[in-house]
Design a protein around this nucleic acid. Sequence first.
DNA 1: TTGTAAGCGTTATCAT
DNA 2: ATGATAACGCTTACAA
Lengths: 355, 355
Amino acid sequence: MSRPTIAGVARAAGVSVASVSRVLNGLPATEEMVERVQRAVDELGYVPDARARSLKVGRTFQLTLAVADVGNPVYVTMMRAVEEVVSAAGYRLVVTTTGPDVVDEVALVRGMARGYADGLLISPIRVDEDLVKSIRECEVPVVVAGNVPAKAGVDTVRANSPKGMLLAVDHLVAKGRRRIAFLNGPADTVPGAARSKGFAEALKAHELQPAAVAEATDFTFAAGRAAAPDLLAAGGLAGSRSHRRRGGDEPAPTTIRPTGGAFDAVICANDLLAVGVMHELAAAGLEVPADVAVVGMDDSELAEQSFPPLTSVNLGSAERGRRAAELLLARIEDNDRTPRRIVVQPSLSIRRSTP
Amino acid sequence: MSRPTIAGVARAAGVSVASVSRVLNGLPATEEMVERVQRAVDELGYVPDARARSLKVGRTFQLTLAVADVGNPVYVTMMRAVEEVVSAAGYRLVVTTTGPDVVDEVALVRGMARGYADGLLISPIRVDEDLVKSIRECEVPVVVAGNVPAKAGVDTVRANSPKGMLLAVDHLVAKGRRRIAFLNGPADTVPGAARSKGFAEALKAHELQPAAVAEATDFTFAAGRAAAPDLLAAGGLAGSRSHRRRGGDEPAPTTIRPTGGAFDAVICANDLLAVGVMHELAAAGLEVPADVAVVGMDDSELAEQSFPPLTSVNLGSAERGRRAAELLLARIEDNDRTPRRIVVQPSLSIRRSTP
DNA sequence: TTGTAAGCGTTATCAT
DNA sequence: ATGATAACGCTTACAA
């Protein structure tokens, strides 16, 4: 007893397969025909095979969302927004995870040619020539939530993190903080590079010097913790302690650019890093925000869950997800439209980690 | 210029489609044949169509993981474990999210009959007759990460939350806490019911009375916060304040069972609820763990990220994910094996939210 | 309105 | 070892 096929239904109903197909797709048919087909369908528990259907019609009605790290709460915000838009349009959303390496992303994009889905929404963390090429050549529509060169010829929706940085610095300065440190994620990533540049510009706008800058090996909580002692040391806020924690299985050492002077605020490239830093600050006996103010980026669910709740730059993850999804749907409708490059403006969610 | 098909490759290589297929699938062929086909494939950038292939061979080499809430960090732990197992076996993992309603789960299970994937790994939060029925009748192998009646005739991997509760209570009692409160999630869910029962048993084992019991409307941070004031009120730890926060757009009121007496410890049905409670405890001027010890469940990444780091019952999410994935793969190999019901034992991860 | 039949892009069976 | 061809389960001209 295998799955019933449309032929089985046709036989049971005493009609042709074409009629069954028509009834199932709501095409014109007589009362009686609909009746008979429906009965047979119910009786046999027939469900059309999506593979066969999509082979024929050339569409799967599935969309793929690819994220680098399911553990990063910024993606859940985005995912929720995307899900809402695509399901309203009658598509199934499937999520796959790529990992931090660009080769995995390239493999994924190439793999889309196999016809798994009608479109791909990808938020790449590292971008290289190969990835751009694979996106440009991809058989199915792709939209990138993030920054990818215009020559990729693809729709993009990205954040304005320099502007976000400025919001953060403005706020800190307004609260009287001048010695601002920065904990970045890997600078060889797209967001890492953008935030680094943004931080420098924002400080320059206020005629300030960075109090300390460090680079975590990853955009994760663990990497944030691992990088914090070095940041503290660079900022003159901790001494020998900074090397005590380096155990055997910790991530590789962080890159430090000591710029002298203690800091009274630290901006982190995302919320996970910020929460990691806050833990280490507490371990060093420093109070947030009294001794050091902390600002995260992404304004993910983690920002309100953390303690103290984290002031965070809202880079519009939900809106980016929503608009990216809309762009994808639009491109599926019409693949000839000229690629759009949308920039979503940031805002600042002020919570208790800043004064 | 549409996608090249196997026919195009065959034409370009001057061989038959059958030969192309053979070469691509590593079946015996002469040096020269392999050579020619390979060249044509590279030249055209041919990628086999997964839909057509799976229509023919009856397998998609995709597996679906369905979770109720992508925002719940326990699922990321599980997801990572599942991903590792299935990708090692040559399957793609796709994640879909169901939402908290059982009807969505049923729809998803039924939908699997369309042939989206070769197997389904589902972690249902609510279970009813319909769901059991849909799982039993599902065309593709299903394994449940969670608790579902044996009559469903399906492989299950579940946690032992009563045992976990006992671990938590043992620990609290050993630390001198006797007035233990419990914040549950919705009792009409499978984990909610199990944890409620487990809590009662664990207290009885120590001949203790519950200090306060409340039920959040959801297993989320927001619901945890919303429920906390009532819990505090029930425990005599807060007065009128408990109703101050109830704004217009807050979740529905929580169910309270006041049992008298202030409490010095609270066990929460998952980490998100625990973090929510900790926020409200702080807002009420109570210190964790000095005034109130807090224990979460799931031992998710959030437990170490929270502040203070959360003592949490490790219900073996990673192991559950791993074993569930193994079960699924085994059943795909042999659908006639008798269903297994695996129970994973808990452990306690002690952190600073308890003394 | 309904039925017949030709594909969609593969793989697998059968000859050769 | 290779090639022709029949499925896989569906949709859609086209014919009746």
